[in-house]
Design a protein around this nucleic acid. Sequence first.
DNA 1: GTATGTGCAAAGGTTTTGCCCCAAC
DNA 2: GTTGGGGCAAAACCTTTGCACATAC
Lengths: 149, 149
Amino acid sequence: MMSLALASSTTSIEKVLHQAGRRVTPQRMLILETIRESGGHLDADEIHRLARQKAPHLSLSTVYRTINVLKEVEVIEKLHLGDGRPHYEIKKGEHHHLICRGCGKVIEFQSPFSDKWGRGWGEKYDFEITRAHLDLRGYCAECRQEMSG
Amino acid sequence: MMSLALASSTTSIEKVLHQAGRRVTPQRMLILETIRESGGHLDADEIHRLARQKAPHLSLSTVYRTINVLKEVEVIEKLHLGDGRPHYEIKKGEHHHLICRGCGKVIEFQSPFSDKWGRGWGEKYDFEITRAHLDLRGYCAECRQEMSG
DNA sequence: GTATGTGCAAAGGTTTTGCCCCAAC
DNA sequence: GTTGGGGCAAAACCTTTGCACATAC
């Protein structure tokens, strides 16, 4: 059922699921691969629509249940990009987002932000910081050009 | 219908509503005052529950409609604190949040640094930044003590 | 008086759940 | 063979909307 192409990139998630006592199923592999291939930032319905191209009767409830499993085992995480819905991305090292108010495009960037500034604020308020989320909203070059043109 | 106590703090919002061509109603005043008095960060249902203590048959739809009006006239803004629901706070100068994963407490702080940081990233990606949202999640002193005790 | 706002109930959209069958282990 | 997982449909939840009446202007 799974293509050879995805076998290599799914090896580690299989271990993670096993170690968490969860089963490895084609649906879970497909949903994870869909998020991976997309480059991230999909909402539940987008995951469903894309994944159904490969597995036409994958149900939306399986997508939601799988999202929750993948969050539990910390393979993906939830983002709030400003439209109503939560979006999901593969969990990786701390990074932040530039979010275009015009076209919705999301640009990721790495920054030692939380190390350099976060720690200071944590100390000031006697707060142990586990995670910094920095979202910068504005307009990308293309959208600015369209607006002025 | 309105108490004298709130008259002074609601003067400016009345002007804002008038200038936007929107009517000033007791419900709108009450809802705004509820958010103000709470110190911020309420969700729609919390606003409804609190405001109904003073106006028992205020409807939830009025709360939602008023939230939208107050957002339009830029008196409040929406926050995502990590639980599912959006929360709302009075709009003021740019500030950021320390959010406790234990008890949900929110501490606000001002930082002149996010601007500087943000600007740098904006230039790098040819992105015009209009707003920086920085959320630092972790554990407050009380919750850390409870966990270790 | 007119148009906007409100309350209520119904509808809409998203996420979760119950149930039964199926498949991973 | 057992038990967790998937599909489907229904329920639960949160938010918006239609309508008739009320009220700010």
